[in-house]
Computed example of a mutant assay.
Amino acid sequence: MAYDVLVIGGGPAGLSAAQNVRARGKTALVVSNPLEENPLWKAKEVDNYLGLPRLSGAELLTAFQRHAESSGAEFLEGRALSALRSGESWYVSVGNMMVQGKAVVLAAGVVRGKKLPGEAELLGRGVSYCATCDGMLYRGKRVAVLGWTPSAEKEAAFLEGIGCQVLYLDKPRDCAIQGAEKVEAVTCGGVTEAVEAVFLLRPAMAPGDLFPGLETGGGFVAVDREMRTNLPGVFAAGDCTGGPLQVSKAVGEGLTAGQKAAAFAAAVK
């Protein structure tokens, strides 16, 4: 699946970027979690978006998505797990799929929370961010699923369906992953359970983990006024670039990022 621009994130910034990419005649794919998992969806009333006062977050997001869809933007539900630049293109893995783009707009919002103890050390040795990608490796074995989104339950059900013995932990706190050469156990709330794999299903990857070498500062992606990052062909917009964390700011940055990403893609031969 090859596109001119890949947009990672389906909130106000990402949808604005996608619509503006399409307005310039370039193809756009939006990679995102279900709309209902966006934090804005739960807002009962947004009173500071110019011209559209007192709409709920759900109403705004629905209108934004319909606009992007009507412009011809395409959508892929899932979490972006890794990104690699090869030649003149970026390749982003989404679950067990790989999508390609000449440029990328990173608009995945704010990723909260630190890595769990043992997460980085045991990544690829029992720690995974994708049940549908790596689940078959643990068929018939006991695994833990740490889920922070409603869709995490679907991935837990997938694991059970292929024969895994699943320990599901919903929005866990104070967790740690143990193991020497591979995952051996997970501890949560003072209780340790023996498992052979731990699936961490967060809403999104931290930008620096998704794009190695991406410049950040204070937990946010560093950009210039054209929303360019330090990586070629990668732009960023919205909450991931810092405050104020407001819809108006996200939509405006998405417009700029979308325009510049489309121009970058047009220059790629």
Rank of each mutant, 00 (worst) to 15 (best):
P207S: 07
P232G: 13
G213E: 07
D209W: 14
L231P: 13
T216G: 04
L210M: 09
F220W: 13
R225C: 07
T229L: 01
R225S: 06
F199G: 09
F220P: 12
F211M: 12
P203L: 06
P212I: 11
R228L: 04
R228G: 07
L201D: 04
F199D: 14
G208F: 15
A197K: 06
D224W: 07
A197L: 04
G217I: 10
V223Y: 02
N230G: 14
G219Q: 10
F211Q: 10
P207L: 11
T229P: 05
F199W: 11
G218E: 10
P203R: 03
G218R: 14
T229V: 01
F211D: 14
E226S: 01
T229K: 06
P232D: 15
A206M: 10
V221Y: 00
L201R: 00
F211T: 11
L210I: 12
G218H: 06
L210H: 06
M205L: 14
A204P: 02
L201P: 00
L201I: 12
L200R: 02
L210A: 07
E226R: 13
T216R: 11
T216W: 13
P207I: 14
R228E: 09
L214Y: 11
E215G: 03
D209M: 13
T229M: 01
F220R: 15
A206L: 12
A204M: 07
G217V: 03
M227W: 01
N230F: 03
E215K: 06
M227E: 15
G219S: 02
E215L: 02
L214F: 11
P232K: 10
M227R: 10
L210Q: 06
P232Y: 09
M205S: 09
A204G: 07
L214W: 11
A222M: 15
P212D: 07
